[in-house]
Measured scan of single mutants.
Amino acid sequence: MTEYKLVVVGAGGVGKSALTIQLIQNHFVDEYDPTIEDSYRKQVVIDGETCLLDILDTAGQEEYSAMRDQYMRTGEGFLCVFAINNTKSFEDIHHYREQIKRVKDSEDVPMVLVGNKCDLPSRTVDTKQAQDLARSYGIPFIETSAKTRQGVDDAFYTLVREIRKHKEKMSKDGKKKKKKSKTKCVIM
């Protein structure tokens, strides 16, 4: 069974824990209790493949930012979460993405942009803004509501699919490099 290491990042209060708990335990946590770091595991079937999701729910508070490099190193894919009623959390996505790329030393890291709290009427981040940002990053965008469960499975499952595509691409690139290195030079 394939294991996928997913990391949920975003500013404090955007609903990272609520999304994760909704996926794992099928219930909505409405009281806000700032996370330092929590880890969850769940076995699911995605596109006919049974897999184990190892999900790291991270601290959004700035005082825990020193811990970010460590979990970013171990993560295979990242859910970059903002709240649709919090423009600052949307603007912060850029910083999370840049930090992930720096730590992973790669421009090509599996990510999904997630606009959470889409059940709320007080939207300050337009869907088109988020779609445009995701398009500019070359990553999928999904709106979710941890409260109603809308888009929750889709967000995590899409990230797994992005990781699969990335692994497939990397193995193809690896095979191309191996083929090239088999060419021999004969000096007579």
Rank of each mutant, 00 (worst) to 15 (best):
T20E: 05
E63T: 08
A18R: 03
Y4Q: 13
I55N: 07
K5Y: 01
E37M: 04
A59S: 13
A18H: 04
D57L: 00
F28K: 02
L23Y: 11
E3G: 07
D30F: 08
S17L: 01
K16N: 05
E3Y: 06
V8K: 02
Y40P: 00
S17R: 01
I55A: 08
E3Q: 09
H27R: 06
D54C: 03
K42E: 09
A11V: 11
Y4I: 15
I24Y: 10
L56A: 13
E63R: 07
D47K: 10
G48K: 12
L52Y: 14
E3D: 10
N26G: 13
I55M: 11
E49D: 11
I46Y: 10
I21T: 10
K5W: 01
V14F: 09
E49R: 11
L6D: 00
E63C: 08
L19E: 14
V45T: 14
H27G: 15
G12F: 07
L19G: 14
D54A: 03
K5I: 02
A18K: 06
Q22K: 13
G60Y: 03
C51H: 13
G15F: 00
D33H: 04
L6G: 02
L23Q: 15
T2A: 13
N26F: 05
G10N: 00
I21A: 10
G60R: 04
L19R: 00
E62I: 08
A59C: 11
K5D: 07
K42L: 08
A59F: 02
Q25T: 13
I21D: 03
F28V: 04
G48F: 04
Y4T: 14
K42A: 09
R41K: 07
G13S: 11
F28S: 03
E37F: 06
V9R: 03
I55Y: 03
G13L: 10
S39W: 03
L52F: 12
D47R: 07
S17Y: 01
G15V: 00
L23H: 14
L23K: 15
K42P: 09
G60C: 04
V9M: 12
V45K: 13
D57W: 00
K5L: 02
D38C: 01
D30I: 09
Y40T: 01
T35K: 01
T50D: 11
N26L: 05
D54K: 04
L56N: 14
D47S: 08
I24R: 05
Q61V: 12
N26E: 12
Q22C: 05
Y64M: 12
T35Q: 01
Y40Q: 00
Y4K: 15
D47Q: 08
S39F: 04
E62L: 08
T2F: 10
D33R: 02
V14N: 12
A18E: 02
I46L: 10
C51P: 13
Q25G: 15
Q22S: 14
V7A: 07
L6F: 11
T35F: 00
G12E: 12
Q43K: 14
E3A: 10
A11M: 14
I21N: 06
V44R: 12
T2G: 12
I46W: 08
I21H: 10
T2I: 08
T20F: 01
I36N: 05
L19A: 15
C51V: 14
D38G: 02
E3K: 08
A11T: 08
S17C: 02
A18C: 09
A59Q: 07
G10V: 00
Y32G: 03
Q25A: 15
V29P: 11
D47F: 04
V29D: 14
V14Y: 07
D47Y: 05
D30N: 10
V45G: 13
A59V: 03
T58W: 03
D38A: 01
I55C: 09
L53Q: 06
I46H: 11
I21Y: 09
L56V: 15
A59I: 02
D57Q: 00
G15L: 00
T35G: 00
L52V: 15
P34I: 04
V45L: 11
I24Q: 14
N26D: 12
V7C: 11
K16C: 05
V9W: 06
G15H: 00
F28C: 05
T58I: 07
Q25F: 06
V29R: 05
V44K: 13
D38S: 01
V45I: 11
G15Y: 00
C51I: 13
V7G: 05
Q61E: 14
T58R: 03
L6K: 00
E62F: 08
A11C: 13
T2M: 14
E62C: 09
G60F: 02
K42Q: 10
N26K: 13
E3F: 07
L6N: 01
N26V: 04
V8S: 03
K16T: 06
D33A: 05
G13Y: 09
I55P: 01
T58K: 02
T2C: 13
K5G: 06
D38Q: 00
D33G: 04
A18S: 10
K5S: 08
T35A: 01
V8M: 07
I36T: 04
K16P: 00
Q43M: 09
S39M: 06
L19C: 14
D33K: 02
L56R: 05
L56Y: 09
V45R: 13
P34K: 06
S39I: 10
G10A: 07
R41G: 06
K5R: 12
S39D: 05
G10E: 01
T35W: 01
I21W: 11
I46K: 10
Y64F: 11
E63K: 09
E31G: 07
V14K: 07
E37Y: 06
G48P: 08
G60T: 04
Q43R: 13
K5H: 10
V8Y: 02
L23D: 05
V29E: 15
E62H: 09
T50F: 06
V9S: 04
D54F: 02
K5Q: 07
S39P: 01
T20W: 00
D47L: 04
Y32A: 05
G48L: 04
E62M: 09
Q25N: 15
F28M: 09
V7S: 08
E31F: 06
V7L: 08
K42M: 09
R41E: 03
G15T: 01
H27Q: 15
L56M: 14
E37Q: 03
Q43P: 13
N26T: 09
V45F: 09
E49Y: 08
V29G: 08
A59D: 06
L56S: 13
N26C: 08
S39L: 13
F28L: 05
K42S: 12
R41H: 06
E31A: 08
L52I: 15
E31P: 06
G60M: 03
A18D: 06
Q61P: 12
L6C: 07
S39R: 05
D47I: 02
Q43I: 06
G48Q: 11
D57G: 00
G13I: 10
I55E: 00
K42D: 09
L53H: 05
G48E: 11
